[in-house]
């Protein structure tokens, strides 16, 4: 790390020990020194290499300081225009940001800062973003900011080609990863004008295979319903899906509704709920829906019994 000289900067020291202060913080000497300098340089709007270095040090101690990101961006934009190789300069900034990202997984400013850099970049590349995305998802496979950023990249680069395979890999690792499941929906919503019937049939098979593996998993069932509604005008597969869902509920529909102990276990309450929703939409199968909701209330998902009774009321 290069050493910069700040000796000519007159710091704007932070006031401490104020009267009637709430949540007084015992600042370290280092924090006071850094903030004193940063306040002075921001106030002067000095756009220089040493100011850039200082922002890195501030981000290290206070990554939530929104103005410092803004300041850093203005410095980068200014110095980029003075540098001989803009691409190289911005890539170096992205490299720096990768390191900061790894150390601050929950900070959200990082991601919008990254977006600003890519918008500034003359030749941005999705491929360059993949390693940091991978590291962050390996660390926390459901990190909302990281997933949102990945989706932003897909839209920014208009590139969705790797998304289904990527989501499949993550579902392979953890079949309960809801972020990966909703990523598939994101894919279809944004790619839906260019997809074939074969692809849709493959996707349906993918969902059914995963449900077969673990029937009691809310994510693929929710996704299945959304997927079906999204493409309801494109493919007729209602009976196939209904037959499939029925295989997870045994013969409970034909049994009398008695006490919970008399009812057998079934493999999936979500299958039963899926069927109830489907049956409820058609007056001819409404009785089945009422029975399915009653079974959910009595035995298979009793914590939501008042919801199931509410659904029955809606049907009547």
């Amino acid at each position: 790390m290069e050493e910069y000289d700040y000796s000519d900067v007159k710091p704007l020291p932070i006031e401490t020990d104020l009267q009637d202060e709430l949540c007084r913080i015992m600042y370290t000497e280092d924090y006071k020194r850094l903030m004193g300098l940063a306040r002075a340089l921001i106030s002067l709007n000095e756009l220089s290499p040493r100011a850039l270095q200082l922002t890195a040090e501030i981000i290290d101690v206070a990554p939530a300081f929104y103005t410092i990101w803004n300041y850093r961006f203005n410095i980068v934009r200014h110095m980029m225009s003075e540098s001989e190789d803009t691409v190289l300069y911005l890539n170096k900034e992205l490299d720096w940001l990768d390191e900061v990202t790894l150390n601050n997984p929950k900070n959200y400013q990082i991601w919008s800062y990254r977006q600003s850099l890519l918008k500034l970049h003359p030749s941005p590349s999705f491929k360059r973003e993949l390693p940091i995305l991978k590291l962050m998802i390996d660390d926390d496979s459901k990190n909302y900011h990281v997933w949102s950023y990945r989706k932003w990249c897909c839209l920014f680069f208009s590139d969705f080609q790797h998304e289904l395979a990527y989501a499949s890999d993550l579902i392979e690792t953890d079949i309960y990863n809801n972020s990966a499941w909703t990523h598939r929906m994101f894919y279809w919503v944004n790619a839906k004008d260019v997809i074939s019937k074969v692809e849709l049939a493959d996707e349906l098979q993918f969902i059914m295979d995963k449900i077969q593996l673990v029937p009691q998993n809310i994510s693929p069932w929710t996704y299945l319903r959304g997927f079906q509604e999204l493409f309801h005008d494109r493919l007729q597969w209602d009976s196939k899906v209904v037959d499939f869902a029925t295989t997870f509920i045994g013969d409970v529909l034909s049994l009398p509704i008695g006490s919970p102990e008399d009812l057998p276990e079934i493999e999936s309450s979500y299958a039963l709920e899926f069927l109830a929703y489907h049956w409820g939409a058609d007056p001819c199968t409404r009785d089945n829906a009422v029975k399915a909701y009653s079974l959910l209330a009595i035995k298979y998902d009793p914590i939501r019994k008042n919801l199931w009774h509410h659904k029955i009321n809606n049907l009547n």
Partner: peptide, 21 residues
């Protein structure tokens, strides 16, 4: 306790101190 003196580990939240309050 959170309205009283806070240790330096809270420095990172200084910018959002109104949230603590």
């Amino acid at each position: 306790r959170h309205l009283q003196l806070l240790p330096s580990s809270h420095q990172g939240h200084d910018v959002n101190r109104m949230a603590i309050i």
